[in-house]
Design a protein around this nucleic acid. Structure first.
Lengths: 144, 144
DNA sequence: CAAATAGTGGACAATTTTATCCAATATAAA
DNA sequence: TTTATATTGGATAAAATTGTCCACTATTTG
């Protein structure tokens, strides 16, 4: 469904959000350990999230990754997916056709539209904050 | 959502089904042209579908690919997806966790479950035959 | 200012997926 | 039985994704 990079990105964001809730910056190493991901690769993904203003990154000692209160309230799952995987989830044809639309639909156009619309709605309404709160309470997990 | 191989597989199946409706066997070349896919790669995919009894393949002159009446009525989209992409669509965790279930859910487990269940239902109820009929009527397209 | 720390950016490597080529096999028809 | 045709299977190759390494920059602290 999503690329591995995107999966890491979502997991990392939730961890960073949860730590930001208790006013903690986290290092790349912290993130990689928390979500059980390859550190160097995760670094690339965090850079992308940072450039997209989804997370903050600070250099130097006492540096690290974090999310501000505003970001915490604003950032939805969809923003992360879009930043990493682009709009393919929204626009792409289920059968890989370049031009697939109402006028010239692929054979499963309508069937997929239903599901895609649900997914879209879910991504656009689910906040990282809400996921971070659940995670903080021990209701969900980020590795294994 | 699906691998490219799976997209080709679905498109190929629909074309073969539609031609079988008018009692025509089609060659690899026919298929590749009809769905605008690389022939040699498509060949590998058709082999897989054939081994999974989703389509028939006959060698030699007058050979080619086809679907029998029974297959036409029986084969669902899900069979094709399963034959090519395996069960990842059904079982895989949305965030890539190995062990993600009700007891130890990833942070988006429930949100994804909703959508995955819908997708599953759609794949298990949509017959290739119905898609082939629409395609035959010119209601849908397999290339571009 | 020097030293230590933490993210950045670029090059590179491994793996997976997608795609190609060709000899071998099977089969129908002449 | 020979020939032509069409799929099969194996070996490779190309492309995309995933993953690693390291020197560089920015920044805090002593």
């Amino acid at each position: 469904m999503f690329s591995k990079a995107c999966e890491y990105g979502i997991r990392a964001s939730i961890f960073i959000a949860e730590q930001s809730l208790i006013d903690r910056k986290v290092s790349l190493k912290d993130v990689a350990e928390a979500i059980d991901s390859p550190a160097a690769y995760t670094s690339k993904i965090l850079q992308k999230l940072s450039r997209n203003n989804i997370i903050n990154s600070d250099k130097g000692p006492t540096g690290g990754f974090s999310m501000g209160k505003k970001e915490l309230e604003k950032v939805k799952l969809g923003s992360i997916v879009f930043a990493i995987d682009g709009e393919s989830i929204y626009n792409g044809c289920g059968l890989g056709l370049k031009k697939c639309n109402e006028k010239m639909p692929c054979p499963v156009h309508n069937q997929f539209k239903m599901i895609r619309d649900q997914l879209k709605k879910m991504l656009e309404t689910t906040t990282v904050l809400s996921l971070a709160v659940d995670y903080e309470k021990g209701f969900s997990f980020l590795k294994r």
